[in-house]
Amino acid sequence: MAVDKGIRYGSEGILHRVSVRKVIWRTFIYAVLIIGSAVALFPFVWLVRSSFMQMRQIFILPPEWIPRPFVWQNYIEAMTVVPFGLYFQNTIKIVVGVMCGTLLSSSLSAFSFSRLRWRGRDMIFGMLLTTMMLPYAVTLVPTFILWSRLNLVNTFVPLTLPAWFGPPFYIFLLRQFFMSIPYELDEAAYVDGASPLYVYWRIILPLSKPPLIVVGIFSFLGVWNDLLGPVIYLTNPDKFTVAVGLAQFRGMYSAQWHLLMAASTVVLLPVIVLFFIAQKYFIEGITLTGMKA
């Protein structure tokens, strides 16, 4: 496109200069993206090359980049010594519970904190935020005692149920996004006799796909990588998650790094695929056509 213009209007000077600048600008963007990608790929490449190595080659300094010999066996061994099939199933169950709960409860609450007016709204919102300011380490023991009194330890309930009660981080995130949607849209709907629930479902949510995708990705990853929660609340090996499975390579087999790296790669793949699909929804969500014009 840019080059095209350059040729066509080449004799006219100004336009030619504009397109040359565009080409330089594009080249610059690609250069930064490619260099940045190389840097960002580093840990991943490191992980994958380690997953094909024998344990002693992983830590050689300076590091070697080509596995010698290539140990495919790591993957087979990693997937069989720990029952990952079962762990995947368990994790999926928790993921579904947490994602549905988080998306629904936090968007509903965020809607109320950003688009509705009620007494004490901002004070209660502030109180929700303070719950994130106390280090996890000190509420850990009281929280555990709470769940064990309720007799719910060794079930998925302590890991999933809180997600249905609006985790403050996501409420805050969605609130910020909801607040940048023009209020005229709500007003128009209310004039037509719509209920707040209608406005929430038909106006705010459809305009908020990118932030909702972010909430989805984060809550998925939160469960996928959470080690502390399952370690504390799940005691029965039948209920373990993939994160616990990964940790087992460090515990019971006294740090089998090559297996850990192979299993980590397998556990990482669904995340990459998911993100690749989800990022497609990062497209302009709101258009002001016909408004304020």
Binding site: S106, S109, F111, F113, L116, I124, W164, F165, L197
Partner: peptide, 8 residues
């Protein structure tokens, strides 16, 4: 509608 958050 903020009830879940308050309850939580």
């Amino acid at each position: 509608m903020a009830l879940p958050a308050i309850l939580g």
